[in-house]
Design a protein around this nucleic acid. Structure first.
Length: 536
RNA sequence: GCCCUCGUAGCUCAGUGGAUAGAGCAUCGGUCUCCUAAACCGUGUGCGCAGGUUCGAUUCCUGCCGGGGGCGCCA
């Protein structure tokens, strides 16, 4: 896909040669200046290359400008040296008209797609909630985040496997089954058991004679699956811990570690030398009672995942961050390269209702589950709210705000832009206005600042998608979508389309501009896993 | 004590190794005979503190202060 920066970069390259800076000492960076008055694009090459060029940056910038001005790259109206030594480019709107044509040609399926990950596979594990209860608000965040990250990776060409690990054996399951059993008999769960209300609810559903363990696991998994389905999050692979143990994967990985002399016995327990691989201490693999800890099957699971991904990504809650060094150490002990394993730690979610924070604790019982949020605001708002901010920050979701049908709710701004586009389509149809073939439309009539702002936003989408994928930060796509919506609302306000006093040539060009906006919004919403209403 | 993470406007949050740090909400004041006013326009003494690296730091590094999370032969 053509990029206006290619021409600018070639021009800068030639200019550097022209002023005797050969070869260029740095990669030529071209970025958008924060301040529009500094032009459409800007380069800091003169600042970066000044030292090797052995002249003041400002002087170098002026020399570069002199060369570029003699033979300006495509679309360039003027080149200026500015500030400490920036080279600023002023461009004709034609570069944006080319962007519009590109967006239309690529469509929602093709625009902002890249092949940076083609031929590479990645396994992404997220949510992996214990089958001991419903998904809480934090799980909802990982579901929204993880699925959107996968969509980003896919858009960049990676082959992605979405993975969910089910810890269906061990002490927590025993406690859950015991809690369920106690409730079904009208008794209190064990002290360190599960005290949430749902345990009593589920116990009441449990048929007489059912095995609380088996029945409870199925009940919890069904509940979680329903919630994930409601959020439009699906997994390619569920791996059961007990099944993994049953088919011998755990024993095999233990043998493997033994053969590598990574294991020793002490106090009747089997330990892994994780301390030698960067962990703060060695860890127990098999307890003195002969039972494996969760850690050993988890190692086996991660070992397996490398058969599905060149890159293995775990998305974990902040409360599991301490687990990262030991898993990293275990994988190192098995000979996996460190760069093949990536962990993304998400901070907690707090829900607020009526101005009061609701505490999240599945075992204590006072828990806010995702389905509560889903029931109130629906899957689209739920996902978008989760993806409004970075997972590095703790998130506070005010249920009163996000469930309000008001301007306070940040989701509506986006949805309204989408609805306006579809409203225009309906109006156009009612008035018998049709969009002419793009070949016959003169996009050069798009010169209004509001029109150009929309196109500038659209021009930035490919970079945004690429950057969001690299940073594992789907919320950057949300931010972009809000910026596009803002540009679109301002355009809408100032640039009528169907009104009688609008000339046909301008109307046609604007109809295509709206279509391009629709495509941009569709790309972003597809990555976010959100659908927007066609009318509000 | 150690580890992870955050600290940006009254509130909720974006953002960047660069040239004058943004959005939404809230406040106050404007804009519909016109495609949806859930919109638009105007309105602001803000990067926790101190060092360091750099031509340039709010951004990177170190320390401190403050918030959240974690440090089991639980998962």
């Amino acid at each position: 896909m053509p990029d206006v920066r290619d021409g600018l970069r070639d021009g800068l390259q030639a200019a550097l040669e022209g002023v005797g800076v050969v070869p260029a000492p740095v990669e030529i960076a071209i970025e958008r200046p924060r301040d529009r008055s500094h032009g459409e694009w800007s380069s800091n090459v003169a600042l970066a290359a000044a030292k090797t060029a052995r002249r003041p940056p400002r002087q170098l910038a002026e020399q570069i400008v002199a060369h570029l001005s003699a033979e300006p790259p495509p679309h360039v109206l003027a080149v200026e040296a500015a500030g400490p030594g920036f080279v600023n480019f002023r461009l004709a709107p034609s570069w944006l008209h080319e962007v519009l044509a590109e967006v239309i040609a690529a469509g929602a399926d093709g625009y902002a797609r890249s092949d940076t990950g083609s031929g590479r596979s990645v396994s992404v594990e997220f949510v992996s909630a214990n089958p001991t209860g419903p998904l809480h608000a934090g799980h909802g965040r990982w579901a929204a985040y993880g699925d959107s990250l996968c969509r980003l990776l896919e858009r960049c060409g990676y082959r992605v496997t979405r993975e969910f690990y089910v810890n269906d054996r061990g002490r927590q399951i025993d406690l859950f089954a015991a809690s369920l059993d106690a409730r079904s008999r009208g008794a209190e769960p064990p002290e360190d058991g599960y005290h949430g209300e749902y345990v009593a609810d589920w116990a009441a559903e449990m048929p007489d004679g059912a095995d609380p363990r088996q029945w409870g696991l199925e009940r919890a998994r069904r509940d979680q699956a329903d919630t994930l389905a409601a959020m439009n999050v699906t997994f390619d692979r569920y791996t059961s811990e007990s099944a993994l143990v049953a088919r011998g994967a755990m024993d095999r990985v233990l043998d493997d570690l033994r053969s590598r002399a990574m294991v020793y016995t002490q106090d009747g327990a089997v330990w892994l030398r994780t301390g030698e691989f960067g962990d703060s201490a060695d860890r127990v693999l098999v307890k003195s009672d002969g039972e494996p800890t969760y850690f050993l099957p988890d190692i086996a699971y991660h070992h397996e995942k490398f058969s599905r991904g060149d890159l293995v990504i775990d998305i974990l809650g902040a409360d599991h961050h301490g687990y990262v060094p030991r898993m990293r150490a275990a994988l190192g002990a098995l000979g996996h390269p460190p760069e093949g394993y990536e962990t993304l730690i998400g901070q907690n979610v707090t829900l607020r209702r009526g101005g009061v924070a609701v505490r999240l604790s599945k075992r204590a019982g006072d828990m806010v589950i995702v389905s509560e949020l889903l029931d109130e605001v629906g899957p689209d708002v739920t996902r978008l709210v989760y993806l409004l901010q970075s997972i590095d920050t703790t998130q506070t979701i005010d249920i009163d705000v996000v469930s309000a049908q008001s301007a306070e709710n940040p989701v509506y701004y986006l949805q309204y832009a989408h609805a306006r586009i579809h409203s225009l389509g309906r109006q156009a149809e009612a008035r018998g206005v049709r969009r002419a073939s793009l070949d016959g439309v003169d996009l050069a009539v798009l010169v209004h600042e509001r029109e150009l702002d929309v196109l500038r936003a659209l021009a930035g989408l490919p970079d945004t998608v690429a950057a969001a994928m690299r940073a594992r930060a789907p919320h950057q796509v949300t931010t972009w979508a809000r910026e596009l919506a803002s540009a679109f609302h301002r355009f809408w306000h100032d640039c009528p389309i169907l009104r009688d006093d609008v000339g046909e040539d301008v109307r046609q060009a604007r109809l295509w501009l709206v279509e391009a906006t629709r495509i941009g919004l569709a790309v972003a919403l597809a990555i976010l896993g959100v659908s927007a209403p066609e009318r509000l």
